[in-house]
């Protein structure tokens, strides 16, 4: 069954709204009601982690039953959120999609090198084996997978959803990959001074828009420590030292919780390498054996 059929069936079964993707070129999240079911799509540009919306503005409490479309990486968030009792399991219907990897739309525009925006109906994109095939107005372009794939997808361990109620498409057979913390190890091999130099250059850029926090599906505290005035752990001024405080605290709060969906790094307007920080924490958490103490997410439970 394809996505739309699945969605139709779910609406019939009493799901009120499905959080999914819409558009071919201009891909956006959509909160689809039953009459908009035809808008739902999935293609390699569906980069967003939609589980973030489940915890926003008390959304789960307002609706009886919500459907949510997840890729492999996004599905891990659901497990983590359930572990934290963010909502009850019977409120949500997880529509899992085995995923071959996603891409940044800007990269395609860059590669095609055309100036104008494409209309949704003249644009087609899909995976064909190890190639990405893009069709624009009848013209077709091909890109090799490893050239265009998002970094996080290159080391993805779970292309198949680890939790789902309905599956759209077939499970993917993929050689087992393992996160090896390559980038983290690279930084670790630098000297203390070099590391400091690297990081101040990055931290100085941060404009503290807090997009990385807002987009994170696991940053959903109702009263965030950053908004607290008494005690004020992070001052409002946007300066190097306060930025460092912010980034240490953000990464730390996600210790053993971050599922590595990469959303924080993707949204950052000034391209801070936030995944590096997250991965470092993940690596140390593993090393220190925290996961025995604090409940780990059991992948594939």
């Amino acid at each position: 069954m394809d996505l739309v059929e699945v969605a139709k069936k779910l609406f019939d079964e009493g799901v009120e709204v499905i959080i999914g993707y819409q558009g071919n070129f201009n891909v956006k999240p959509i909160f689809a009601k039953a009459n908009e079911v035809d808008k739902l799509t999935f293609n390699p540009l569906c980069i967003y982690n939609l589980t973030n919306y489940l915890t926003m503005e008390g959304f789960v409490d307002k609706v009886d039953k919500i459907g949510v479309v997840v890729k492999g990486c996004d599905s891990k968030t659901i497990l983590q959120l359930l572990d934290e009792n963010a909502f009850s399991r019977d409120k949500i219907v997880v529509i899992g999609i085995p995923c071959n990897g996603v891409i940044d739309v800007n990269k395609i525009v860059e590669e095609i090198g055309e100036f104008r925006e494409f209309k949704d109906n003249e644009f087609k994109i899909k995976w064909e084996g190890d190639e990405l095939v893009v069709e624009v107005n009848g013209k077709s372009y091909k890109f090799p997978k490893d050239k265009i794939l998002l970094e996080k997808c290159k080391v993805c361990e779970t292309p198949n959803p680890v939790v789902y109620d309905v599956l759209v498409g077939n499970l993917i057979q993929q050689p087992h990959r393992k996160e090896e913390f390559k980038a983290v190890k690279e930084i670790e091999s630098l000297s203390l001074e070099q590391r400091w130099e690297f990081w101040i250059k990055e931290f100085e850029k941060c404009i503290r828009c807090y997009a990385c926090r807002n987009v994170c599906p696991l940053c959903y505290c109702e009263s965030c420590v950053l908004e607290r005035l008494e005690p004020e752990f992070v001052r409002r001024a946007v300066r190097l030292d306060e930025n460092i405080a912010y980034h240490l605290i953000r990464a730390y709060h996600l210790a053993n919780r971050c599922v590595g969906c990469g959303e924080c790094e993707r949204v950052c307007p000034v391209n801070l390498p936030l995944s590096l920080l997250n991965k470092k924490v993940a690596k140390e958490v593993k090393d220190l054996g925290f996961s025995e103490f604090l409940k780990p997410i059991e992948v594939g439970r």
Binding site: I187, E188, L192, E193, Q194, R195, W196, E197, F198, W199, I200, F203, I244, H247, L248, A251, Y252, A255, L277, K280, V281, E284, V285, L288, F290, F293
Partner: peptide, 21 residues
């Protein structure tokens, strides 16, 4: 005490990572 120990250890490793003492 165990929590504190773990927290400090993790923090120390993060500090080291960003090039602080």
């Amino acid at each position: 005490s165990r929590l504190a120990k773990m927290r400090v250890e993790l923090l120390r490793r993060m500090l080291e990572f960003v090039g602080m003492d």
